[in-house]
Simulated assay, not measured.
Amino acid sequence: MEPQSEYREELVARERSGHTTVVEGNFLYVWGGYVSIAEHEIFLPNDEIWLYDLDSGVWEIASMAGEIPPSMSGMCGCSLSGEMFIFGGCGDHGQTNELYSVNLLDKKYTWRKRKHETGSVPSPRDKLSCWVHQDRTIYFGGYGHKLLSELTNSRNFIVDEASWMEDVFWGWNNEVHVFDPRTNSWSQPRTFGHLPAPRAAHASAILGNRGYICGGRVMETRTSDVFCLDLKSWTWSEITPISALPVGRSWHTLTAISDTSLFLFGGLSDDCKPMSDGWVFDVETKKWKELDHPYKDKPRLWHTACLGRDSDVVVFGGSRDYILLVDTGHCNDALIFQTQPYPLLRLCEDFIAGKSTVFQKELPCLPRKLRGAVEKRTSFFRPASKLPDQM
């Protein structure tokens, strides 16, 4: 659809990478992350949260209170029963293993630090992933540090030889940890089967009772392998695709878009090239299929992706450059990927909203509910002029 020529000025969330986003109701919530300025990492304010209306495309910002987490990047975020949970991450004081939650529904945005009652808290880490299953959050992998006394199993932790010092060792892990917010308890189930290699900056998604991971950095390489963890039996299995597959990568995203399919986008290739390709993986047929999309000129890494309306995937932020080599390239645009055919109502709403100047006389004649939906979509199709950075 052709955008209208009228421009509007509005707030736009700051460019960032390594942030967290969740969708709750009709809003995409954005918190944290960092930008690079003159070779310095600047962590973004921790006392604000950005809301993106998925229908209108309009941003708003809200202040946060309570036990506010430190400003950081690389934490793992998810939504459970109207609350956003974040765990891990790395800030000015290094990596953390603290867990926080905030209610997104009461509009007060008051953080709460979750103090565990029982069980052992995972070691500090960042660049991990998680699943939400049976009202629990389940965390996998990441890059972090352990004391010498904590190195009990070489299958679960690979030491980064370039980073260890004295009795503190940094490295990659393939551990699975479960947090139950009803009891504030941690547990570490024993897993079986073919375990994936320890890794970080991978991507994960969940389908039913099965958690999936794809790719990530395994020591000095980046992979595109796919593993599945049965969340009832805690048994790992590797899925061997029977088709052409994406190149190995890290800092990409994986999003469930149907009962049997996952959408992969972007990342950093093994030769350190920012990627803009999109792929759909069918877990039943074990086939990858590259998805044609309009954002081939918008590579992204260390971005986020969430499931929106009608199986849309909403990608926000990230970097278009290799962030370890340059101090520019952070993004703040929301890319909307259509992964499934739209229903007739969505097609009609978008068509009318995209040509609202043509239908000005007819709009008041629409049923009230439909007219309200079209008016919100009209705002989405009207381009916004970006204000200067809010920082």
Rank of each mutant, 00 (worst) to 15 (best):
R8E: 06
E10W: 02
E15D: 14
T20F: 01
T21N: 01
V23G: 07
N26M: 09
F27L: 10
Y29A: 01
E39K: 12
F43R: 07
E48N: 04
Y52G: 06
L54C: 13
S56Y: 05
G57Q: 02
M64C: 15
P69L: 08
S71D: 14
G77D: 04
E83N: 09
E83D: 09
D92N: 15
T96H: 09
W111A: 08
G119Y: 01
P122Q: 08
L128E: 10
H133M: 07
H133S: 04
T137M: 10
Y139N: 00
G141A: 09
H145L: 06
S154N: 10
M165N: 14
E166L: 13
D167C: 09
N174M: 04
N174G: 00
V178N: 13
F179P: 00
F179H: 02
P189A: 01
R190C: 13
F192E: 11
A203F: 00
A203L: 01
S204H: 01
I206C: 10
G215P: 08
G216R: 08
M219G: 12
E220G: 14
T221Q: 14
D230F: 01
W234M: 13
E238Q: 15
L245F: 00
L245M: 06
S261A: 15
F263I: 15
L264C: 12
D271W: 07
F281M: 10
F281C: 07
K287L: 14
H293F: 09
P299V: 11
G317H: 04
H330D: 13
N332L: 13
P343F: 12
S356I: 13
P364E: 07
R368Y: 05
K369T: 12
K386Q: 12
